[in-house]
Amino acid sequence: MMEKDVLSETQKGVKSRVKLASNIQRYGMVLVFFLMVTIITILSPRFLDPRNLLNVVRQISIISIVGFGVTMVIITTGIDLSSGSVIALVSVVTASLAHPNQYPLIIPILVGLLVGGITGLINGTLIAIGKLPAFIATLGMMITARGLALIYSDGRPITNFSESFNFLGQGYLFGVPFPIYVLALTALISHIILKHTKFGKYVYAIGGNEQAAIISGIDVVKYKILVYTYAGIMTAIAGILLTSRLSAGQPTAGVGYELDAIAAAVIGGTSLNGGIGTIPGTILGALIMGTLNNGLDLLHVSAYWQQVVKGFIIVGAVLMDKQRRI
């Protein structure tokens, strides 16, 4: 009896310590973020101006939405390099259907989502059934989709949209930019999918140990295809928002976005080794990058130095986070 009591006592101790440790892990990046915010606020009080804060969130909304899909892909130990180019392809296709009095708003949106979904489906199929490395499959899609965007638009931007389409990227609802609502909704849906559905659990399982997932009777092929398709759809949402925001469907849109999205996910704690990662983390990663961009501009840091500072802070933040985890 005595022994049992002692055991449960130590177990309790262990329990609370583990909780603390995991909390520090989870919130390490939050600390980094608040540290950054504090420093920027001290140097430029304008940072906390609500309009500026909304500005920052709107600026990160596109990368974050791409990042949600990319996060899931990376959790399965995959990678998606095609996001930037898919944004361009979705952008020109959507734009061509969004002229005033052409179709109801739902048509360009649905077609855009379909285009994004199909690119994701192809990525997933090549990876899961064709057994191609994700890097190669999505690199191929990155190049192909950019080319298709140029072909479709003849290399020129497509402009002149209906009022309702312009609203998506430029409009305000109750004083808050509309893209922020889209960001919140996609974040919520992605988070729930990842944490509370079978699909989400299997995403973690495949990344945690693919062999074990196969043994556990998980249809790895099917779920991998689904993950890339989901990423394609998220990318399409981002592409539609960007098109509306820029008032143009551009075949050159989204260059380099794939790397920003991957960076947001990784800064937010997603492991490139798979099995680890969260949606709130990715938002945090995007916030850290967005705040940095915004803060450096607010402080009028010389543009050459901005790049040096950004590089340092991104690597430094992840390094600090890793230190905490060991």
Partner: peptide
């Protein structure tokens, strides 16, 4: 399986490891 490591999802929680084959 023979090798524990090939059957476990090491980065995941005890809970997720237990339910993974019977989620339905």
């Amino acid at each position: 399986t023979e090798d524990r490591k090939s059957g476990l999802f090491l980065p995941l929680s005890v809970r997720d490891n237990i339910i993974m084959a019977s989620i339905d």
